[in-house]
Design a protein around this nucleic acid. Structure first.
Length: 421
DNA sequence: TCTGGGGTCCTAGGACCC
DNA sequence: TCTGGGGTCCTAGGACCC
């Protein structure tokens, strides 16, 4: 059996840990740049605010005092997440951390009669020790556990834990679940399914195997098997990420290539730093840019360019230099750019970098590595923007990103901790 | 005025091989 | 008019996830 532990309205719950006065009140957390609503309390859901709503559409509610908004504070959420995960890790032999607010617990070795108690204890412990409410769904497959956690969240009587431990419960849950709530069935698939007369998860689970295979391929088949109780979503290979991306929207649109170059330098340098932190290196560097897709009155342009290095790299100099080359090939004047980003991919372990048959400049590489190590050491202590390349922006990475409602770094900044206390 | 960021996997089609 | 059969690998784009 699997237990899916899901933090309720996670970002909102994190903010409420330090603002208990907001319990029971409508709260939302916004994306970068205060752009969209990305987390909602139950009360703000009840007001009809949808996930992804542009903030400007609900800003008047904040001004009227009917809604409380927070800019996103990922340092806080990441820290509270690791506290939750550490409690969960202590409770069972094996756990898969699936996202910042979700984890699958493997319940092998736990007696069926003890599962519910174990989960209820966990709900209480996380609440008491971290302050965040969680829901747990227990079922024989991950897809069913996801559905169960949804019921755990919705029905008060479950006290945070929904057990789907026999077939009648499974069938009943499937019958009550619209097909779109199933893990792996997204926006595009829902209308298609409905066109085929598949409205509930049970409708789908009862279709013949051949029909599923013919219409939806291997992905659909996996979902179908899981809904029917046959576990086939296996453990993620969580060794090494396959790509790393750093991108941001700009508070204002940017046309000037010099200004874009500063931003793209920052993104590339951050990608390089993420690579080094994971002891990885990348062969491919991609730069992409978007104009503002919501402005019908402006010319649109969504270019991207990729350069493949002869030898995988992770130094700021090389990744940034390559990103600048990409930028030069795609930049066109006369467009208003709203967003840009850098992706590094084709990632290999840093200690397994191969030279080319023509050899490569090991002396240069070794100087870059030593410089990177010094930069990482200094920036690790003094803040990530203390040492940077001249091509990067002065100031902090987050400068120029709107965050008008940011809470304090309650758990990760000594200054903030002292001041708040 | 104002609309996020970071990932994974699958598939179809092209290039290439014998 | 007529133009094989069977593979592999890579890439771009789509769909999905949180």
């Amino acid at each position: 059996m699997y237990a899916l532990v899901d933090c309720n309205n996670f970002f909102v719950s994190c903010e409420r840990v330090f603002r208990p006065d907001l319990d029971g009140k409508p709260v939302v957390v916004l994306s970068n740049n205060d752009g969209c609503v990305v987390a909602r309390s139950n009360e703000s859901k009840a007001m009809g605010i949808k996930m992804g709503t542009p903030f400007f559409q609900v800003k008047h509610l904040v001004e009227q005092g009917r809604l409380h908004a927070f800019s996103s504070n990922y340092a806080l959420y990441g820290d509270l997440s690791s506290r939750v995960m550490s409690i969960l890790s202590d409770a069972v032999p094996h756990i898969e951390i699936y996202s910042i607010d979700e984890a699958f617990l493997h319940l092998e070795g736990v007696k069926p009669c003890e599962m519910q108690k174990l989960c209820r204890d966990l709900v209480a412990k996380v609440r008491r020790w971290v302050g965040v409410p969680v829901s747990i769904g227990v079922a024989p497959t991950k897809t069913l556990a996801k559905l169960a956690s949804h019921f755990a969240k919705t029905y008060k009587g479950y006290k945070g834990v929904c057990m789907m431990d026999d077939d009648s419960k499974r069938v009943k849950a499937l019958e009550m679940s619209p097909i779109g709530e199933v893990w792996g069935v997204g926006r595009r698939l829902v209308p298609k399914m409905q066109g085929w007369g598949v409205v509930t998860a049970l409708d789908f689970a009862r279709r013949p195997r051949e029909w599923v295979s013919a219409n939806l391929g291997v992905n659909g088949l996996k979902i179908w098997e899981e809904l029917n109780g046959n576990a086939c979503v296996t453990e993620e290979n969580e060794d090494r990420r396959k790509s790393i991306c750093t991108s941001r929207s700009f508070a204002d649109m940017i046309e000037d290539v010099q200004e874009l170059a500063l931003r793209v330098s920052d993104f590339a340098a951050l990608c390089a730093s993420k690579l080094r932190r994971e002891k990885s290196a990348a062969y491919d560097v991609t730069v992409f840019m978007y104009t503002n897709r919501f402005r019908d009155d402006l010319k649109q342009y969504f270019p991207s360019a990729t350069i493949r290095l002869d030898v995988a790299a992770n130094s700021a100099q090389e990744i940034v230099g390559t990103a600048m080359k990409c930028l030069r090939t795609i930049y066109r004047p006369g467009y208003q750019y709203k967003k840009a980003g850098v992706i590094v991919s084709n990632i290999v372990p840093a200690d397994e970098i191969q030279g080319t048959i023509f050899g490569f400049d090991e002396e240069l590489r070794s100087r870059q590595d030593r410089l990177s190590a010094v930069m990482d050491a200094v920036n690790g202590q003094a803040g990530s923007s203390m040492l940077r390349l001249a091509s990067q922006r002065p100031g902090h990475f987050a400068d120029g990103i709107r965050s008008d409602f940011r809470s304090r770094l309650y758990t990760t900044s000594l200054e903030d901790i002292i001041e708040v206390r």
